[in-house]
Simulated assay, not measured.
Amino acid sequence: MKRVRLLCDNGITKVPRKYVLPLPDRPQLTPAARKPSLKLPVIDVGQLLLPDRTEVLETLDRACKEYGFFQMVNHSIAGEVTRRMIDVGKRFFELRFEERAKYMKTDDELEGLQVLHRGEWITVEPLPNSVIVNVGDHLEIHSNRRYKIVLHRALVNTSKSRLSMASLHGLSFDRVVHPSPELVDKDHPRLYKDTD
């Protein structure tokens, strides 16, 4: 399937039918029909460095259990770094398809991220200069499903362009992930096999 940007570059004026979701499956984009927004728990990295970090650890635990996401502030990633990343990202996606295709592989301040929370798609309200973090496979396995992966999606915006930059972090390929022994007992049996 051709990428949407390639179709736009070639002068398409109407979205092909195969890209259009059935009406009941479409995300709610108009303000009147929009679902409630969600303020994700905020984790202040500076608080994690204090001797008494009980409160922030409890917030982090609750965020991972209830939402599978949180926003991280005071993360020491310089504003200039994120501004440059966004600038490079925008310039990249403005290139013609043939230029971008050289880098393609086959394998969040404008609203657009939604998370499935208690059966509803909720729009996340982004905080300026924050990094949104979500629980991944390794943490779900290591926590013996105390923390769960949460379904999420991104919406397009009809009036402004939106740029997301995902940074995936995990263990090295030669490491084995398994439930932490401290989280396995007779009331909480082991739910996962060892996996790489």
Rank of each mutant, 00 (worst) to 15 (best):
R100L: 12
P181K: 14
K35S: 12
H75N: 10
D108K: 03
L38A: 05
F97M: 07
D187H: 13
K14A: 13
C64S: 09
K65N: 01
V135Q: 01
N134G: 02
K105W: 05
Y147N: 03
I43A: 00
V176M: 06
G79H: 15
R62G: 01
D196Y: 10
I149R: 00
L40F: 07
Y103W: 12
R53F: 03
M85P: 02
S76G: 11
S130A: 15
D87A: 12
L48G: 09
M85A: 08
V133S: 02
F173W: 13
E66V: 00
E94L: 11
L23E: 15
E99V: 09
P31I: 03
L50A: 12
G119Q: 04
V88A: 11
H75R: 10
T123W: 02
L155H: 03
K148V: 03
Y103K: 10
Q114F: 03
L163F: 13
D44V: 08
V73I: 15
V156Y: 14
L113T: 02
S37Q: 12
K35A: 13
G68H: 03
H138A: 12
D25K: 14
S143D: 02
V88H: 08
L163A: 03
D196W: 09
E120I: 10
D107K: 09
M1R: 10
V135A: 04
L191H: 14
M1L: 11
P189M: 08
P16C: 11
L95I: 05
L23C: 10
L95M: 15
V88S: 08
D174P: 01
N74Q: 13
T30Q: 09
V81G: 04
R146A: 01
V124S: 00
V124N: 03
S167I: 15
H188E: 00
V150Q: 06
R96D: 15
H138P: 02
S143M: 00
N134H: 12
E182I: 07
